[in-house]
Design a protein around this nucleic acid. Structure first.
Length: 735
DNA sequence: CTCCCGCTATTTTTT
DNA sequence: ATAGCGGGAG
């Protein structure tokens, strides 16, 4: 048996409650841990890996562990290392995508790829689709590229190859889409490129096509662990099943209440039916929350219990006191931003620094009002997600040059930079080159590098010659082992990209140069940390990196991000802005009951990020699409019992802070009336709590607003009169 | 071939 | 409000 009691056992080094401990120690086969928000999910996962390595003697390279972000993977590796006390470089831990890339780089030839294949992002996909549409003579307005991309993603999620898609297509439109899919696949394959979905799907395809390869990987990994299991999609499920084979050591952690990626193919059924896919599954439920105060938790619970089709569970915690959750109505988005700014300022006096405050919103566009406000008031902020660094045009241009050095077949990259900066290579020259390329069966860059271009016009010839010279040099530099930095420098000088920006000399072009410098600096740091790696590795990291991966908390800077981005994070204070019909839930999901449930969960995810302070706000008017729109409070807020929050109205005609017109002037509305608990120093007020005022006598708190020194109470006194008091000045004592 | 003007749709969410 | 795109002039 396992020696769990031995001193130095990992379960002794890391504090675990009973259920957590059982989940870590369980070793009898498939295991599913339902881990509610803030219940120590990461802790269990980390302890589990450390336990396997240290107590069960499993070699790190036999553990396969999928996380949701690269950042999570990095942190988990570090924690495991500190627990077991040895480096665990050989541990396979990362996102599904990065782990699959690792497999695919080794096995690429089996699938007809070179292992230097490029990873195409959304923009690259779009460029390919546009090209394909033109080629197939399909108008963009009959099948918008966006729709084609979605359709292809669906095919891939179902692990359906073009042939099958064509067979199944019914009706003209579906046939067209299947044709697009076939052609798209061919273009990517010719470019030696894979899109994000391919990374999973091609690995599954590899396993199906080559049983020997599958078997080798099955034998290689003795344990498979998956985090955020509720966000896995169909192809990922297939991947896990394929990798596991008959191996029962599959461990999944997740929370169906936090499933918010249905729109990109994630299937909650995966977690709800886990025990059907993996026989004899043992299920553990983590319900004790270590993150939030009671008011936050009660609020979040109320938000989520109204949902349908979920595994029943209820989070609880031992911290019974805390600031009530606030729901606030604002006039408009400008006021929302400015009052939230003021509240963040005031939080400072309660010891909550801007760095542990987060403003959450549904759409990236909502960040503008906050950015404007914070900039005006000189409050530093970090905008996570949104336009990520690597999505900027100048960065993508640089990366396109670099990509071509690694993969000469990458025609999308070639077309991108062919005439950037301008080399006199317009549409005509492009077509001429493409024709030549088609004849020789080579890619565009290879054609430029190896073919005789003398039939082309003098101007075009000159342009292509300069590209030939540039890339000959770049490729040579890379072959000789020059650093990514040096190669980037040569791109910037040799292509004229830098002088183009310098000549432009606008505020924008200066910012672009700044960004390019940042890329250069990043490369330097990267190379320092990973001396053995090359340009190709850097580009791979870039294409799989998310903004959250890079995000680091800064003491003085408020965090701004979308609700999706906030998953897995936590903050002392959380403001969820724009809780309005049409925003949460998004108007685009009004018609779909399943997606409406997902929107509810999105709000739940947001709410459970808060440790101490939570505010949900909505506005009466909002600037959208360049005009003012009238907004309504989100339906999800309506469903919450009034006793679980305090309402502040700062809407039109409510200059002063006003009370909601709460109905019950009766005592005892909810379970909030247990024994009054107060933390030692600062007196905490709670809804429903009884207090004594020296003049007005005994009364019950029926509403709270504001924070810290600005905390205002509405007290219903025994004389049946409501009075609004400033908590600090009122000199109240507990009854 | 390049540049610039004005029209348009766009706002979900991201590995 | 604004980025991206097409059309027309130089």
């Amino acid at each position: 048996m396992i020696n769990t009691g031995a001193p130095g056992c990992v379960t002794d080094k890391i504090p675990l409650n009973d259920v957590q401990k059982q989940a870590v120690l369980y070793s009898e086969g498939p295991e599913l841990v339902f881990a509610g928000a803030g219940t120590g999910k990461t802790r269990v996962l980390t302890a589990k890996i450390a336990f396997l390595i240290q107590e069960k003697g499993v070699y790190p390279n036999r553990i396969f562990s999928a996380t949701f972000t690269n950042k999570a993977a990095r942190e988990m590796r570090e924690r495991v290392e500190s627990l077991v006390g040895i480096p665990c470089d050989s541990l396979w831990i990362g996102t599904f995508h990065s782990l699959c890339v690792r497999i695919l780089r080794r096995e690429a030839p089996v699938l007809g790829y070179k292992s230097s294949f490029t990873i195409y992002d959304r923009d690259d996909q779009k460029a390919v689709i546009k090209k394909v549409l033109k080629e197939l003579d399909i108008e963009e307005r009959s099948i918008p590229p966006k729709r084609a991309i979605q359709a292809i993603a669906r095919f891939k999620n179902q692990c359906m190859r073009p042939a099958e898609a064509e067979n199944r297509a019914g009706g003209f439109c579906e046939e067209q889409i299947a044709r697009i899919y076939r052609r798209y696949t061919a273009v990517l394959s010719a470019a030696n490129a894979m899109d994000f979905d391919d990374l999973i799907t091609n690995t599954v395809y590899l396993f199906t096509k080559e049983p020997a390869v599958r078997k080798a990987y099955q034998q290689r990994f003795s344990h498979i662990l998956v985090d955020e299991y509720q966000d896995t999609n169909n192809s990922q499920l297939h991947f896990v099943k394929n990798l596991a084979g008959s191996n029962p050591n599959v461990f999944a952690v997740g929370d169906d209440d936090q499933s918010i990626y249905g729109w990109r193919g994630a299937n909650v059924e995966n977690i709800l039916n886990f025990d059907k896919h993996f026989a004899n599954t043992k299920i553990f439920m983590l319900e004790q929350n270590y993150r939030s105060t009671n008011p936050v938790l009660d609020f979040a619970n109320a938000l989520i219990v109204a949902g349908k089709k979920r595994s029943p569970k209820k989070l609880w915690c031992t911290v019974k006191t805390g600031t009530p959750v606030q729901i606030v109505r604002y006039e408009d988005d400008r006021q929302e931003a400015s009052v939230i700014y003021e509240q963040i300022q005031k939080l400072g006096s309660t010891g909550i620094k801007p760095g542990s405050v987060c403003v959450l919103f549904r759409t990236n566009a909502q960040s503008r009002a906050f950015e404007a406000e914070f900039r005006k008031r000189n409050l530093p902020y970090v905008l996570v997600g949104a336009m990520s660094f690597y999505e900027r045009k100048e960065i993508k241009d640089c990366c396109a040059y670099l990509r071509l050095v690694i993969n000469r077949s990458d025609d999308v990259a070639f077309e991108r930079i062919m005439n950037t900066p301008a080399r006199g290579l317009g549409d005509k020259s492009k077509q001429a080159l493409q024709q030549l390329a088609r004849k020789t069966g080579k890619s565009m860059l290879e054609t430029v590098l190896t073919q005789d271009l003398s039939q082309l016009g003098a101007r075009a010839q000159k342009g292509f010659e300069s590209l030939k010279d540039l890339f000959s040099l770049l490729i040579q530099m890379n072959d000789e082992g020059d650093s990514p930095q040096a190669i980037l420098e040569q791109v910037l000088e040799g292509s004229g990209y830098l002088s183009m920006l310098e000549k432009e000399d606008t505020e924008e072009s200066r910012a672009r140069i700044e960004n390019i410098n940042e890329l250069h600096t990043t490369m330097g740091f990267w190379k320092n940390e990973q001396p053995g790696k090359h340009l190709g590795d850097f580009l791979e990291e870039v294409s799989l990196a998310t903004d959250v991966d890079k995000w680091e908390k800064q003491e003085g800077a408020v965090n701004l991000m979308t609700l999706h981005c906030a998953k897995g994070l936590e903050f002392d204070a959380v403001f969820i802005a724009g809780c309005e019909e049409g925003i949460v839930p998004s108007a685009l999901n009004f018609e779909d009951p399943q997606r409406l449930e997902e929107e509810r969960r999105l709000l739940y995810v947001g709410a459970t990020r808060a440790r101490k302070i939570l505010q949900c706000s909505f506005t009466q008017q909002r600037w959208r699409f360049g005009s003012v729109m009238t907004m309504e409070k989100s339906r999800y807020l309506d469903a919450i019992p009034p006793g679980l929050y305090s309402f502040t109205d700062r809407g039109f005609g409510n200059m002063a802070v006003q009370d909601s017109d709460d109905q019950p002037d009766t005592d005892d509305q909810s379970n909030h009336d247990d024994t009054g608990e107060f933390s030692q120093e600062t007196v905490q007020y709670r809804l429903g709590q009884f207090v004594v005022h020296e003049k007005y006598g005994r009364g019950k708190i029926v509403n709270l607003s504001g924070f810290g020194g600005d905390l205002r109470l509405t007290v219903l006194f025994d004389d049946r009169r409501r009075r609004r008091l400033i908590a600090r000045a009122a000199n109240l004592s507990p009854a």
